[in-house]
């Protein structure tokens, strides 16, 4: 696929145009990725409300019936359930890596083996999260490794 970037004048609206013969999975993936660049979520921190960009979220974690979004150094409470976020963003590089965590694949620096067939994902902010063994086949499928 040829990639072309065109400079435009300041007053014109920026846009991404995909010219393709057929809208296949690859095209949809690109569309979802571009859309996620602008997606904003509402996060809560000590009764204050913040707009959080989806692309800045490293992972979502469910703890005691609450869901938190972890950014580079901030944490916000979300009002959605983890499964709802999974349904919404699984096509946008968010992957369920354990029962309680939904990780942004674009924020993983590397994956290393841990004990008992599990893996640890080192994130770009230095945090480590566990990838359960049962989710590994799904991850490999997602990355087109099997």
């Amino acid at each position: 696929m040829r990639v072309r970037v065109e400079n435009i004048k300041n007053r014109e609206e920026e846009q991404v145009l995909i010219r393709c013969c057929k809208v296949n999975d690859e095209v949809l993936e690109i569309v979802n990725f571009v859309k996620s660049k602008n997606e904003l979520l509402t996060g809560y921190d000590n009764s204050q409300i913040y707009q959080v960009s989806l692309r800045d979220i490293y992972y979502f974690e469910g703890v005691d019936n609450k869901v938190y979004a972890y950014l580079r150094s901030n944490v916000y409470e979300m009002k959605s359930k983890l499964y709802e976020l999974e349904e919404l963003y699984q096509k946008r590089q968010f992957f369920r890596c354990s029962k309680s965590v939904l990780v942004n694949l674009l924020k993983i620096e590397c994956v290393k083996p841990a004990l008992n067939g599990r893996f640890t994902a080192n994130l770009l902010n230095g945090e480590q999260i566990i990838i359960s063994r049962q989710y590994v086949p799904e991850l490999k499928k997602l990355l087109q490794l099997s």
């Binding site: 674009l106 994956v111 893996f119 590994v136 990355l143």
Partner: peptide, 16 residues
């Protein structure tokens, strides 16, 4: 597991 991790890392780099 190291081989699996290696494959996953390659896949992640491709995705990123």
């Amino acid at each position: 597991d190291s081989k699996t991790a290696n494959d996953i890392n390659k896949g992640l780099k491709r995705l990123q």
